[in-house]
């Protein structure tokens, strides 16, 4: 492992002070399941961070709160905690499902949702779920607070717009409305098959038997996480049917090609993402 110094922050203030003083040289560590793999891959001749800043002792960055309408998740909350949370299971069940598919038990016990988001992998499983929940990200620095729709923080694969002196301090979203149904499906539970890390998150809201709202976000399909509005439009105002869900699935795969172009993996991914979308919509309607 390359050399670095370790600072264990006991409070958010202490962590922000350090980031304010020495921004370029500091790297935050939470669960470490992405960062330590990355640091380990550096050869001794490469330059690593001078300081690794451990934020895991900071209690105010942990836990899940529900004020009756908005749910706020601290970035240090682990995937295990989110998967098991009664609040999330009740008001955002697809996020609980998404977090339960991440890695193995050993990873979910320490890996955090904040790390999953800021690492910026197109395959990050919590992200499509958060995107359809229309989540916001809250950042803090010495200079104050910045709130951004989550979707807008992603600049390119493995890069978000977080500033060097900022810490992600919360992820928050509204509870799903009455009548909303949701589903998250991931292909291949483990990451042994790298190509099959595609996933899909959907929410639909029904009034009577008519879809009045739809949100769809595929993972590992587009360069940047996003909702696929064209597919959502197909659903809105219509009654759920297999034929309708197939059309929406086709639209998602078409949009994937528009955004990512044709690649070596396209002949595989195109039918798969269409089928996953159709299946997720079907599952969402059949639930409850």
């Amino acid at each position: 492992m390359i050399p670095f110094n370790l600072v264990r922050a006991e409070s958010l203030e202490e962590a922000l002070d350090l980031l304010d003083r020495q921004p370029p040289d500091v790297k935050i560590i939470a669960g470490g399941t992405d960062l330590l793999v990355e640091l380990r891959s550096l050869s001794p001749r490469e330059k690593g961070p001078g300081i690794v800043l451990d934020i895991t002792p900071i209690d105010e960055l942990k836990g899940i709160e529900d004020n009756g309408s908005t749910i706020t998740i601290g970035p240090l909350t682990t995937h295990r905690e989110i998967a098991a949370s009664p609040i999330i299971r009740e008001h955002a069940p697809l996020l609980s499902t998404a977090c339960s598919t991440i890695g193995a038990t050993q990873h979910r016990n320490i890996a955090t949702i904040g790390g999953n988001v800021i690492n910026g992998s197109p395959a990050a499983d919590s992200v499509p779920a958060l995107i359809v929940l229309d989540a916001e990200a809250v950042f803090k620095s010495k200079n104050g607070e910045r709130v951004s729709p989550l979707k807008e923080i992603f600049v390119k694969p493995y890069r978000t717009d977080i500033k060097e002196d900022e810490i992600l301090t919360a992820l928050r979203f509204e509870r799903l409305p009455e009548g909303a149904r949701s589903s998250f499906i991931k292909l291949g539970r483990r990451n042994a098959l790298a190509i099959s890390r595609m996933n899909i998150a959907v929410i639909i809201v029904l009034e009577g038997n008519t879809i009045v709202e739809a949100r769809i976000s595929p993972g590992s399909a587009t360069p940047l996480p996003d909702r696929i509005k064209a597919a959502e439009k197909i659903l809105i105002g219509n009654e759920p049917s297999e034929e309708l869900f197939r059309r929406a699935g086709k639209e998602v795969s078409g949009e994937m090609i528009n955004r990512s172009g044709i690649r070596w993996s396209t002949p595989y991914k195109q039918p798969v993402i269409a089928a996953l979308t159709t299946r997720a919509l079907r599952e969402a309607v059949e639930k409850r």
Partner: peptide
């Protein structure tokens, strides 16, 4: 050494973790 095999599994505060993916200082 990269969290894939589980040979390094230990129990930390009651939960299984990979000892290769956590700094001792943490």
């Amino acid at each position: 050494g990269i969290g894939e095999c589980g040979a390094c599994t230990v129990i930390l505060d009651g939960r299984a973790v990979n000892a290769c993916l956590i700094l001792a200082g943490q």
